[in-house]
Amino acid sequence: MAVSVQAEDFNVGAEMAAMSAGRADIGALVSFTGLVRDMAGGSEMVLEHYPGMTEKALVSIEAEARGRWALQDCRIIHRFGPLNAGAQIVLVLTASPHRHAAFEAAEFIMDFLKSRAPFWKKEAGSGWVDAREADETALERWK
């Protein structure tokens, strides 16, 4: 399955190796990992999500990306639950024959994960994280 919503951590290297294993047609393999930053006041956060809808949203974002770019493969892993500062939150892998498609598709997927996938971050010290205007405007470039 190309999309996973899980509490467990993931291994970036192992995921990349799995994507390129047994094939030699991939020219570009782009990997993006999102990490929990150590914000002043709280070093732990909890990521809430909407089981069922989250998986659907991720599958739909991936399908949209595959429709726009000629991707040879695509993988999205998004964690939920309690996460400490420095922890990995999200992984996006994209593979294409040339780099532009893989780079752009990975950015596109991240832009949509930010504000169109049902996740909510709560920081231990400061409470629910507000959505950023910049995340909403980031979607406009893909219209």
Partner: peptide, 10 residues
């Protein structure tokens, strides 16, 4: 039907 604040994933 689900109600929630603006999403903050990624």
């Amino acid at each position: 039907v689900a109600f929630f604040p603006p999403m903050t994933g990624g």
